[in-house]
């Protein structure tokens, strides 16, 4: 029981991070129907900017952890968002209206470019991030086993909840969200009704990238070490989460992230940690085969 509870806490933390990345996939897919393969790399860039941000904070002598986290959060969101914007502008927008697989191939190219760019600029060695938040709270102990939730885990879940609520509100209640939903339904009609489609799509990428940056920062704080390659695996898992939840659906992405976190942690905890990634990929394949619309997704009707 104690072991189970501990795994559950770890799984929720991990799931929160995947959920944040998955939102970026789901929003982009919803609005322009492409898999932004480079999104995992955007997450990786966010993690690197956070690492550098924390180092700058300590250089400037900002000792208080909450202040440092807040500053780095804003910094990483802002600068990673520029990446999201630039990628869309340079690699995807010119391809709108090209053949179906063109944006995906372009996205793979972007992903390779970003990985190697970071590798060249920052080196290939894993970068230790240091511990920013330590300590925790013992919930209860049973079978001689302390079930512990660390402050960091609380921060991760809290930040995720706040951001997800915020973004759900943006999509549901603001003019920008309305424009996004309009573009999602029918881009041409939205344009005729005065929605600036290009701007809306750009902002979607900006929002997705900002959330990926947050995920990157949380990942850095949680695992304490990053390298230029983390985006690949995290990206695929988050994509799996988005598909599992129903791609295009925002609550679906959160749910999917949570489920992927659960599957991964419990598989590693109870079966074998070597095959935990195989389990996640297998889930992806199974979901796509048996329920391609995901848990909360709408069925897709292909029009001629």
């Amino acid at each position: 029981m104690a072991y189970f509870s501990q795994q559950l806490i770890n799984a929720i933390t991990l799931g929160a991070i995947y959920g944040l990345i998955a939102i970026g996939y789901t929003m982009v897919y919803g609005i322009i129907g492409m898999i932004n393969f480079a999104h995992g790399e955007v997450f990786m860039i966010g993690a690197f900017i956070s690492l550098i941000g924390f180092m700058i904070c300590s250089l400037l002598g900002i000792g208080s952890a909450p202040l440092a986290i807040l500053l780095v959060l804003l910094l990483a969101m802002a600068f990673t968002a520029v990446y999201g914007w630039a990628i869309e502008r340079l690699a995807y927008r010119p391809l709108r209206g090209s053949f179906r697989l063109a944006p995906l191939i372009s996205a793979i190219g972007v992903s390779i470019v970003l990985q190697n760019y970071v590798q060249l600029a920052q080196g290939a060695r894993p970068k230790p991030g240091g511990q920013i938040v330590s300590g925790g709270y013992n919930l209860f102990s049973a079978d001689g086993f302390d079930v512990r939730v660390t402050w960091l885990q609380i921060i991760i879940v809290a930040v995720t909840l706040v951001l997800m609520t915020g973004f759900t509100w943006v999509i549901a209640r603001t003019p920008l969200g309305r424009q996004q939903r309009a573009c999602e339904q029918d881009m041409k009609m939205a344009a005729l009704l005065g929605v600036n489609v290009n701007k809306t799509i750009s902002l979607t990428f900006v929002m997705g990238a900002a959330l990926a940056a947050v995920a990157g920062m949380l990942f850095l704080m949680y695992y304490g070490v990053i390298d230029f390659f983390i985006g690949f695996l995290a990206g695929i898992k988050a994509f799996t989460a988005a598909v599992l939840g129903g791609i295009g659906s925002l609550p679906g992405a959160m749910l999917g992230g949570l489920l992927i976190g659960l599957i991964e942690v419990f598989w590693a905890g109870y079966f074998s940690s070597e095959y935990k990634d195989v389990a996640v990929f297998a889930i992806l394949v199974l979901v796509l085969i048996f329920r391609p619309t995901g848990l909360l997704g709408k069925p897709e009707i292909e029009k001629v």
Binding site: I35, L101, Y275, L284, L288, I289, P292
Partner: peptide
């Protein structure tokens, strides 16, 4: 057989996942 019913971009990701599965199995 099971995945070819999928749309093009889904197929791409599933084949990617399959490639990774094979590699992980070879390692483990």
């Amino acid at each position: 057989f099971p995945v070819l019913r999928l749309r093009g971009d889904y197929l791409a990701i599933v084949t990617l996942g399959f490639g990774e599965i094979i590699r992980l199995v070879l390692i483990n």
